[in-house]
Design a protein around this nucleic acid. Structure first.
Lengths: 260, 260
DNA sequence: GATAACAATTAACGAATTGTTAATTTAAAT
DNA sequence: ATTTAAATTAACAATTCGTTAATTGTTATC
C-alpha cells in the first residue's frame, strides 16, 4: 500500500503509546561579585527530580533521576498549549517565550512504549523565577548550570534534548533579540553584554572597547529618554550609565553580506 | 495528578490516533531565457494528488486534493527515517538534505482523529528530479511555483505547513550554505545569485556590481583551480566565467556585529 | 579634602570594507 | 568590422572597524 496517498485503515497501523511535551526552562542568574561591579551571569536550566514511587504506589519509571519538566498532552490541546500549561503548573508563571525546537521519537527512548516527545524551550527572567512555588507533590525542583547538568544521570534521552536545546538557544541569541527576555525592560550595556556572554563567546563581545563602541548604534535598541533627558542609572557602577531598551526593529542578517 | 513527574497509567490517557511524516520537497527549476544568458530560476514545490478512492474502494479522505507527500510512521522508525523512506519511494532519489521544521498537532486538522504531523523539508537539485518516476499507484505528481500553490485547495492544513516550510527555507538560505544543495558541484557566480534570488530579495543581491564584487571573497566558496589554472566555463555566457565550489567553512553571523 | 581607583563615555586615526561608477575583456551575432 | 552582453577589474569617496588614548563622574582611601 502506498503511504503517500494516506489510504488508511486504522487496523493496519500501530499508533503511538503517548505524546508528551517537554520544556527546557532556561534562566540567567546573577551573582554579585562586588560593589559597583556588574554581576556575573550564568545560564541555568530548571530540572525536576522524578519521584521514586508513583501515586499508585508502584516504582516510577526513571524514578530518582533529574528530568525536564513536562508531561502527557491531552488530545484537545496542542503540544505548545501543553507546554504553557505545564510551565504554569510547575513555576506558576505565564506569558513567557516558549518555542518548539525538536521532536524525539527514537523507539526505545522510553521503556513504556512508543512515546513521542515534542520539545520546547522557555526563557524565564530570574526575577520571575524566584517566585517559583513548591511543586504540588513536593517534587524537587532545582537550577543547574550547564557544567553541572551534563554530569547528572538524566532521565530518558533528556541529556540529548538539553544539548540540542542549548544549541538552539545559542543560535537564537545570535540571530534574534531573545536576549530581551533575559533582561529588565530598561538595561545597561554591560547587562546586555553579560547576557550575551553566557552563551556566546565571540572576541568582539568580550572586548569592551569594541562592544561599547558598536552597541549604542545597534538598530534594535535605543536610549531611554524622558523629557529630552537621557535616563541613566548607577545600578552597577559609580559612574552613571545610559539606560537602553529594545525597540520593535527586527534585525535581519545573512551570510552573504556579512563581514568575515 | 502531577504531569511533570510522569506518573503514568495508560488507562488514564488517550493516545494519538496516528503519527505521520510529511515532506515539503523544494526544487529550483531553470527555464532558458535565451542563448548565452543565465537561465531564470524559480522555486517549486512537489505535491501529489490524493486519489478519490482508496484501495479498499472507499472514498478517500481529502480525495482529489493536492497534498504534501508523506505517510504514517512505523513504530520502529523515526519521523526522519520515515521522511527519507517516503521520499525515496516517491521520487526514487536518496542522499538529500532533509530537515525537520515543525509539528502540526492542532486537534481537528485531520477528521480521522488525533493525528500528529511531523513536518520536514527537503531540497532536490533539478537534475535529480527529472528522474522522478511515476508513483506506484499512478498518483499524480506535479511541481508548483509558490504563486500557484497558494491558489490550490490543499488537503488538511498543508497550506499552513507549506507557508511555514517556505519561511524556514528562506531563513536557511540566508544563514546556512543550503544553496549548495540547489547547485551543481561546480557553479558560476550568476548561478549562485539566481538560486539566492528565488527566495531572498535583498537589494545588494540584485545589484550585480555589489554581488560580483563581494562574492569572490566569501569564505565558504572557493575558485576551482586545476594544475594552477583557474577553471572556467562559458556555459551561460560568451565570456568565460570562473567556476566556484563550496568548501567546508561554516559561516557564523550574529545580529550584534552585523552592519545595518 | 586631596587623590587613587575604576567603569562609562568620547576622541582619534590608520586599516579594511562598502557602495558606486566606469573601463576592459571576451566571443558570438550581425 | 561592429555591436552586444556578461564577466571581470579598476578606481575612489564614504563608511565602518579595530585599537589606543583621553575624559568624566563617583566612591573609597588616606
Amino acid at each position: 500500500m502506498s503511504n503517500h496517498s494516506f489510504n488508511y485503515d486504522v487496523s493496519n497501523y500501530r499508533t503511538p503509546d503517548g505524546y508528551t511535551s517537554d520544556i527546557a526552562v532556561f534562566t540567567i542568574i546573577s551573582t554579585e561579585v562586588g560593589p559597583y561591579k556588574p554581576p556575573e551571569k550564568t545560564l541555568k536550566i530548571m530540572l525536576i527530580k522524578r519521584t521514586e514511587i508513583t501515586k499508585e504506589g508502584h516504582p516510577n519509571i526513571e524514578g530518582g533521576k533529574w528530568a525536564l519538566p513536562g508531561g502527557f498532552i491531552k488530545p484537545e490541546e496542542t503540544a505548545y498549549e501543553a507546554a504553557v500549561r505545564e510551565l504554569s503548573e510547575e513555576t506558576g508563571i505565564m506569558g513567557l517565550r516558549i518555542k518548539h525546537f525538536g521532536v524525539y521519537d527514537q523507539f526505545g527512548r522510553d521503556k513504556r512504549g512508543w512515546i513521542i516527545s515534542n520539545a520546547h524551550y522557555a526563557i524565564v527572567p530570574e526575577n520571575k523565577l524566584v517566585k517559583r512555588r513548591a511543586a504540588d507533590d513536593a517534587a524537587e525542583v532545582e537550577l543547574f548550570s550547564m557544567d553541572e547538568v551534563f554530569q547528572l544521570d538524566l532521565a530518558f534521552d533528556h541529556k540529548q534534548i538539553i544539548e540540542e536545546a542549548l544549541w538552539f538557544i545559542k543560535k537564537d541569541m545570535s540571530l534574534t533579540t531573545v536576549a530581551k527576555n533575559f533582561l529588565p525592560k530598561q538595561f545597561v550595556l554591560s547587562e546586555l553584554q553579560g547576557v550575551l556572554l553566557t552563551v556566546m563567546d565571540e572576541p568582539w563581545l568580550k572586548l569592551d572597547a569594541q562592544f561599547f563602541r558598536k552597541a549604542p548604534s545597534l538598530p534594535f535598541i535605543e536610549k531611554v529618554v524622558k523629557d529630552g533627558e537621557p535616563q541613566k542609572t548607577n545600578r552597577w557602577s559609580k559612574n552613571k550609565a545610559q539606560l537602553y531598551r529594545f525597540n520593535d526593529f527586527e534585525p535581519y542578517v545573512s551570510i552573504y553580506n556579512a563581514k568575515y
